[in-house]
C-alpha cells in the first residue's frame, strides 16, 4: 500500500484556498498512484477557531464531496483513499473529526469512516471542549490494507486508545494531528515532538501495528504547529519523518507481512487478548498477610 502523509499549512479560515492547495498536492501525488493520502487535523480551516467553529464546520458528506472534487480535478486516473481532519457539524453538535473517504470511485463518493475525537484537550493553550463535543466511539473499519482505526491527536496520548483499536483488529492506526510545538531545549528536536515519537513508537511496537502520523505546520496566533509527520513500522521503528516547520509529503509503503512478522515474533497483542479478562476481575486470590493466618 502506497501512502502519502501530507504535512500541511492551512490559511486560517480560508477553506477555498486550502482546497486549492489540496488539489495542487493531489496533482503532485496522482502520477505516483497512491492508495492512501493522509492530511492532518483541522487541515482545511486551521486548528484554533474558538467560537468560529460553527461557521466552518460541515457535515461529513459535504466534506467528502469537497475532497472528492479535488481528487477528480487533479487529473488522477484511479481511485484513492483520503483522510482529512475537519470540524464536523452533526445536526448542530460540533465535533473535531477525521473522515476516511474513497475518492474518484466510479460509483461515486464513498465515506468509509468518520472518527470523532474522544479526548478533547481543554487545558493550558487548548480549549476544545469549550467549543466541541467529544466523540463516544472508537471504531475500526475495513481498508484495502486491512482493518484500520483513526485517532486524532490527544486520542493517541492515551495508551489505552491504540490498545483498544488493536484489540478490535486494527493493523493500521492513522493519527491526524495539530500539535503546538513547545520545549526548545535539548537535542535539536522539539520536546513535544520527541514525546510524540516515543508514544507512537510504543503503540506500534506493543501491538504490531503500523502507525501513521500527519501533523499540521504553520503558526496560528503565535502557536507553531509542529509538523513532525512520521510513520512507524509494526516493530516500532521510525521509517520516515519530517521536520517541524515546513510543508512536505512523507511517502511510505506498508506491507501486510510486516504486521504478521512483528506479531509472530513478539506476540504481545495475543497475550493481552488472553489476559485482558483477568485485568478487569475485582476478585482477588486470597493472600496470606500474616504468618498466624496460616492453617
Amino acid at each position: 500500500m502506497n501512502v502519502a502523509l501530507v504535512q500541511f499549512k492551512p490559511r486560517k479560515g480560508d477553506v477555498q484556498a486550502n482546497l486549492a492547495s489540496m488539489r495542487s498536492i493531489f496533482k503532485q501525488l496522482a502520477p505516483g498512484e497512491p492508495d492512501l493520502i493522509v492530511f492532518p487535523e483541522a487541515a482545511l480551516t486551521g486548528y484554533f477557531l474558538e467560537g468560529a467553529v460553527y461557521e466552518l464546520a460541515v457535515e461529513a458528506p459535504v466534506m467528502a464531496q469537497r475532497i472528492d472534487e479535488q481528487w477528480r480535478a487533479s487529473g488522477a486516473t484511479r481511485p484513492c483513499d483520503v483522510v482529512v481532519g475537519f470540524y464536523e457539524n452533526v445536526e448542530g453538535t460540533f465535533h473535531n473529526s477525521a473522515i476516511y473517504v474513497r475518492c474518484g470511485d466510479e460509483s461515486g463518493v464513498h465515506v468509509v469512516h468518520v472518527h470523532r475525537k474522544m479526548f478533547l484537550p481543554t487545558y493550558g493553550v487548548f480549549d476544545e471542549e469549550r467549543f466541541l463535543t467529544r466523540g463516544r466511539q472508537l471504531s475500526v473499519f475495513e481498508t484495502a490494507f486491512g482493518i484500520a482505526s483513526i485517532l486524532i491527536c490527544e486520542d493517541a496520548w492515551h495508551a489505552i486508545m491504540p490498545t483498544v483499536a488493536a484489540l478490535k483488529g486494527a493493523r493500521l492506526i492513522i493519527v491526524p494531528s495539530a500539535s503546538p510545538g513547545r520545549g526548545l531545549c535539548g537535542t535539536g528536536e522539539l520536546e513535544s515532538n520527541t514525546r510524540w515519537k516515543s508514544l507512537l513508537s510504543s503503540a506500534a511496537a506493543e501491538h504490531g501495528i503500523y502507525v501513521l502520523y500527519a501533523g499540521l505546520v504553520g503558526f496560528e496566533g503565535g502557536k507553531g504547529m509542529s509538523g513532525g509527520t512520521c510513520a512507524f513500522s509494526p516493530r516500532g521503528d521510525l521509517i520516515a519523518s519530517a521536520g517541524p516547520l515546513d510543508e512536505c509529503i512523507v511517502k511510505v509503503q506498508l506491507d501486510r507481512a510486516e504486521v504478521d512478522i512483528a506479531r509472530a515474533t513478539i506476540p504481545l497483542l495475543g497475550d493481552l487478548s488472553a489476559v485482558l479478562p483477568d485485568l478487569w476481575l475485582d476478585e482477588e486470590i486470597p493472600v496470606t498477610r500474616r504468618l498466624e493466618e496460616r492453617g
Partner: peptide, 19 residues
C-alpha cells in the same frame, strides 16, 4: 532553562515569517 539555539532560531524565524 537551556535552549537549543539552532532550533530556537529556526522556530522564531518561522514565527516572524508566518505571522
Amino acid at each position: 532553562l537551556e535552549i537549543n539555539p539552532e532550533l530556537t532560531t529556526r522556530w522564531l524565524e518561522a514565527f516572524l515569517r508566518d505571522e
